[in-house]
């Protein structure tokens, strides 16, 4: 299943993702946290496989289905328990209903398409992990360049 991944070495904290998501959904479902003026990270619904939001929903509007979460807006009464339960604080209440990131209806997330620095990615693979490994190898390789000769 697909996730929105963040390459933390690339996030600029520009918040283009927030503006893009807000442009499409009214209120942004992705939120950028800037910490101690050193690092920033955009976060959208983590699609947990044991989702607390689904566990607390009294009307079964949020349901754990397979490995993902499905939302049935017609069942939602806007009680906001999901908002309280989410450990990441990524559920919104908008126009009386809960809202969370659904990967732009599992198509092409706008935040990913708009991210200027390429920090956001959507898909099966964790390309950011590969990039981190490559960086580590490059650092090591530069370090031992002298040793080999």
């Amino acid at each position: 299943m697909r996730s929105i991944y963040v390459d933390l070495t690339r996030c600029l904290g520009c918040r283009a993702c927030e503006v893009a998501c807000g442009r499409i959904h009214g209120k942004s479902r992705i939120s950028v946290a800037i910490l101690r003026d050193r690092i920033s990270m955009p976060l959208a619904c983590r699609q947990c496989q044991r989702a607390t939001c689904a566990m607390v929903c009294p009307t079964e509007a949020l349901v754990q289905e397979g490995e993902g979460i499905t939302f049935f807006p017609e069942r939602c009464n806007g009680c906001g328990l999901c908002l309280l339960a989410c450990p990441f604080g990524l559920v919104n209440l908008w126009a009386g209903k809960a809202e969370r990131c659904d990967h732009c209806m599992e198509k092409s997330p706008a935040c990913v398409a708009t991210c200027p620095s390429g920090a956001l990615a959507f898909g099966e693979e964790m390309a950011f992990a590969k990039a981190a490994r490559t960086r580590a190898v490059l650092r090591a390789s530069r370090a031992i360049e002298g040793v080999r000769r």
């Binding site: 963040v6 390459d7 983590r46 990441f88 099966e124 964790m126 950011f128 992990a129 981190a132 580590a136």
Partner: peptide, 20 residues
């Protein structure tokens, strides 16, 4: 584990992988 992948994103070496 709930599969939120936060650990994977913060690992500086990129050595946390996913079980598909």
């Amino acid at each position: 584990c709930v599969g939120c992948y936060m650990c994977a994103m913060v690992c500086p070496y990129g050595v946390i992988g996913q079980q598909k």
